[in-house]
Amino acid sequence: MELLSYDFIQRGILAGILIGVSSALIGVYLILKRLAFLGAGLSHAAFGGIALSFLFGVEPYLFTAIFTVAVANLVQFLTKGKKVPGDTAIAIIFSSGIALAVLILGIVKGFGENLFSYLFGNILVVSKRELTYAFGVFLIVIFYLFFFYKKLMILTFSEELAKVKGVNVKLMNYSFSSLTALVIVASIKAVGIILASSLVVIPAMTGLLLGSSFLMSLIWSAVVSLISVVGGIVVAFYYDLPPSGAIVGISLLLFLLAYLLRHLSLK
């Protein structure tokens, strides 16, 4: 295939697969924990983190990762003991992240173009450093899910039951939120802030529609994400389209197909 002869395409596909699979796997848990919107909240909060990194003149990726992990833990803290409803806490960080970026843009001129490039991302201009970050996040996700697979399953089923069964619910929730933040920061490069949550939610929901068990849902969500990323990049290359839109477009198409299949099989 012609497109695979290009170095940037190879890097883009590899980064996309790593990010897409990581996003889809954590997305399954987020949907089941009714936290599907956390991805959108964190990606928008990350926008504030990127703006801050520009302001301080520090490396954006690392700074934004730390910032977004802190915000994710703040959401956990706010919702602890149900003092603030989960969706409200997410709405707060969602708008605060954007507000922070807008404020910084207003105070310091000249960041605009650089900052806005993060809004839509471009998987085809991923650097080696960003690819390494994506690979690191992918490994953390795989190891985390492998070691805590059973604990996460019972935790997703019922936090009360999990606690009685000796699961450290607080630690698991905080660590999972941190993991989500790391994945979101990685996916910003692939599809941008605005579409980052789509990589988390759409393939995961498709996997849940297709899977006949917990394990199969995880596998399906990863497969759907993989097809979306590779298919999206191929379509974007041949039809000169933005890769982020093509990736999300294909994942949406697969979701609709899965929904239709499920609907027909229930009849």
Binding site: L208, G211, S212, F214
Partner: peptide, 11 residues
């Protein structure tokens, strides 16, 4: 969640 996919055996 009605989408919770785990089989009894898995659970």
């Amino acid at each position: 969640e009605h989408t919770f996919p785990a089989k009894v055996k898995e659970l």
